[in-house]
Design a protein around this nucleic acid. Sequence first.
RNA 1: GUACGAGAAGCUCAUAUGGAUGAGCGGCUGCCUGUUAAGCAGAUGGCAGAAGGUUCGAAUCCUUCCUUGUACGCCA
Length: 461
Amino acid sequence: MERTKVAELLRSTDFGKEVCVKGWVRTKRGNKNVAFIALNDGSIIHNIQLVADVAVFGEEALKPVTTGACIAATGTLVKSQGQGQTVEIQAKTIEVYGTADAETFPLQKKGHTLEFLREIAHLRPRTNTFGAVLRIRHHMAYAVHKFFNDKGFFCLHSPIITGSDAEGAGEMFRVTTLDMKNPPKNPDGSINYKEDFFGKESNLTVSGQLEAELGALALGLVYTFGPTFRAENSNTPRHLAEFWMIEPEMAFYDIKDNMDLAEEMLKYLIRYALEHCKDDLEFLNNMYDKELLNRLNSIAASSFQRLTYTEAIEVLKASGKKFEFKAEWGVDLQKEHENHLVDHFKKPVILTDYPKGIKAFYMKQNEDGKTVRAMDVLFPYVGEMIGGSQREENYDKLHARIKEMGLHEESLWWYLETRKFGTCPHSGFGLGFERLILFMTGMTNVRDIIPFPRTPKNAEF
RNA sequence: GUACGAGAAGCUCAUAUGGAUGAGCGGCUGCCUGUUAAGCAGAUGGCAGAAGGUUCGAAUCCUUCCUUGUACGCCA
C-alpha cells in the first residue's frame, strides 16, 4: 500500500479508508489492552495517533515500538474516540524498520535544552523545535528564489573557492592541497604557492558580491544565494564560520532603489512565512517566544524608518541616554546605539550615508567627500540584518580608494575592469540567511537555525 | 579576542559558612480496559570537566587548561 504523509492524513475526513503511514515514534503509552503510538514523519509538526489493540498484536510485538523507532503501519483511518485529535489510525499491521534502544536513545519524551540538543545535532531534527525550524528554513529559501524570480532576477552562482584576498569582509579559510607537514618552499623560506593546486593562494569565499557585480553588469538583475566562510573568532549567538548569504546586485539601481528592494523583500518573506508556516510558527510562538507572531505581523505592516548616519548620531545625542561608548560622528555605531535606534522608532531602521572611513572600499562616495552611500538595515530582535550600498562605478574614484586603503590592487584587476568597460550605476546588499531565520522563528542562537553549525572549535557532524 | 557565569546520575537541577552526596524527569519492573510530554508504586543509576595545589578533610577554596552560556568586539 502506498504511504500517505501525516500532513495529509490529519487533513483527511475519509473515515473508513485503509491507509499506510511511515515515520518515527514520538511516544507510546497505554495499558494492558491498548497502546497509543504518536507517530511523526516530518511532513508536519503534528503527530498522528496509532491505536493498537494489544490483544491483536501481542505485548511482545509492541515492545520494539519505542520512542525513536522507525515504523510502517497500516490500518483504518477513523474518527478519534479520545480528545486531543480528530483523526487516528486503528492499526492492523506494524512493521519495525529500525529500533531505537530506549536505554541509549538520547531523546526522551520530555523536553531538552537547546544546548544539549546541539551535542546531538545528528538527532535533533527529530524534535518538534528543529522540525519546525528546518521546515521554516526551507520555505524561506524557496521564498527567496521565488521573490527574485518573480521580479526578473537571475540566480548567479558565485564561486566558493576564490583566488581573491581583497574582499575585505573578514579572515579567510585557506584552501590548499599542499602537504602541510612539508610544503614546497621558495629560496627565502616562504611557502611556494605556485606548486599549489591553483598555482596561487586560494581561500573560501567571504562574499559573492564582487562576482555578483560582474553578473549585474551583464544580466541587469542578479542575486547569489550560497555559503560563505569567515575564519573570525566570533563567539556570539549571531555569528557562524559557515553561513548562507543572499546577495542581490542590480544594475541601474541607486541607493534608494536598493532600500526599496530590501524593504520589499523582507516584508515579502515575513508574509510568506506567515502564510506557509502557520503550524510551525504557532508552535514556536507558544514554546519559545509569545511575541513572535505579533512581531512578524507588525513588521510586515510597518514602513521602515530611513535616516542617515548623521541624523542617527543626532537622535542618539538628543536621547540624553548614557551610553558606554559616546555616539560621535565618524565612529562606527555600537550595538547599544543600534539597539537604541530600533527601540526609539519601534520598527526596522535603514541607516545610510556612513562616514567613508568605517565602510568598505567599493561603496559609492558622496559629493561631500566624507560619506559613502552605504545602507544597513537594523531589525528589532536580531540587529543588523542587511548590509549594502550603492557601488562606486567611477574607475578613478574606486582606484584611488583601493590605493588609499592599501588594498592589493593586482588581485582586483578584473573587478576594476568592469569600471573601465561599460560601467554603470549599480547597487546591492547582503542578507544573512541565518539572521533572517532567527528573526522568523524567534530562536535566539544561530547555532539552532542551521542543521550543522560551524563555529570556532566546533566542526562535529 | 575581552568580561562575567556554568561544568555532579541519560536529562534538568538542589547540595548555607569546606565535614558521610540529594530530587524531579527519562529508562527499567509492576499496576491501571482510550491515553494525550498519561497516572500510581518500586528498584536501579554519580567516586561532582581535566590536571595540580591548600587542608585532618574539597562538588565547595586557589592555579592552569578544556568545554559551554551570555554580553561586547569583528560582521551578515
